[in-house]
């Protein structure tokens, strides 16, 4: 067997259960790793062979669901997307995501984070289109060019994993600040030609704890695993709100079955 096949790392896992008022501590586990072993693989190895009570949340194992976010060696990352070999360390420290209320071990509570997301009304709003459709002939579609789609597509790739929220220094001190995820979603709909409710969202974010609390630390974009670049969306949104940058947004053309 080669050295690579015998390699082991030490996994330090943060343990606590706030519902039982447990004091926190780190449990250490020796885990065999290969070049392609991810932190999630290592944690699942611990659950299978060392301690089945380690609390983690995961689902897709392919950076699509955003469930396995945690602080790995001091940086918010997805456990399924972080290879141990790339960390270049023999000790891997796993802690729950900062800035999220903790439930147990590596599992944190996303209620507030999702609530900020929901406050941004993350759906297409267009007062020219009725939402009550009785007749199929009333169905409509919007026409957009590829260039129109490129303006917001990047921001629609957000998987709501919360890494940006946990890396943000403003969120760390202000729980009312919506955070990079919610604000970048506000930009996503602001840039979308199908949406015409700019004023509604501007009123939501243009307040004391709103968008102006972002001072461009850029950490959200550093940790984003999907290339969403929330910092870009937030700064562009600020520019639009100040009237200093142009959006060139064209409200998409409506096409109904009747006028086809």
């Amino acid at each position: 067997m080669s050295n690579e096949e015998n390699k082991k790392v030490q996994l330090k896992v943060y343990r606590t259960n706030y519902n039982k008022d447990d004091s926190s501590h780190y449990d250490k586990f020796e885990v065999p790793v290969k070049r392609w072993t991810t932190v999630l693989d290592a944690l699942l190895h611990v659950k299978s062979y060392s301690d089945s009570s380690v609390g983690i949340r995961y689902s897709c194992r392919m950076a699509s669901c955003g469930s396995c976010g945690m602080k790995i060696n001091g940086k918010p990352s997805l456990a399924c997307y972080t290879k141990i070999s790339e960390l270049k360390d023999d000790v891997i420290v796993c802690e729950p995501l900062p800035n999220f209320p903790r439930i147990r071990d590596l599992v944190s509570d996303f209620s507030q984070f999702f609530s900020h997301h929901k406050n941004m009304k993350p759906f297409i709003q267009n007062d020219k289109v009725s939402v009550d459709i009785d007749d199929k002939s009333d169905l409509v579609e919007f026409e957009q060019t590829h260039e129109d789609v490129d303006k917001y597509l990047q921001f629609s790739y957000c998987i709501r994993c919360g890494l940006c929220y946990s890396a943000c220094p403003t969120v760390a001190t202000d729980p009312k600040f919506p955070g990079p995820q919610a604000l970048s979603q506000a930009y996503r709909y602001e840039a979308d030609g199908r949406d015409n409710s700019k004023k509604t969202r501007f009123n939501i974010i243009d307040e004391r704890h709103g968008i102006w609390r972002c001072h461009f630390a850029g950490s959200c974009s550093v940790v984003c695993p999907k290339g969403v670049d929330p910092a870009l969306g937030i700064q562009l949104l600020k520019g639009h709100m100040l009237g200093l940058s142009k959006n060139n947004k064209k409200i998409s053309t409506l096409r109904t079955k009747n006028n086809e």
Partner: peptide, 26 residues
């Protein structure tokens, strides 16, 4: 620098992100 940045200047344009995802704002 931050006055320009926070006005949306000098950050690049949104586009389709490709792996390894180098954020244009940085």
């Amino acid at each position: 620098r931050l006055i320009f940045t926070e006005s949306g200047k000098g950050l690049g344009k949104p586009g389709r992100p490709d792996y390894p995802y180098n954020p244009s704002s940085l």
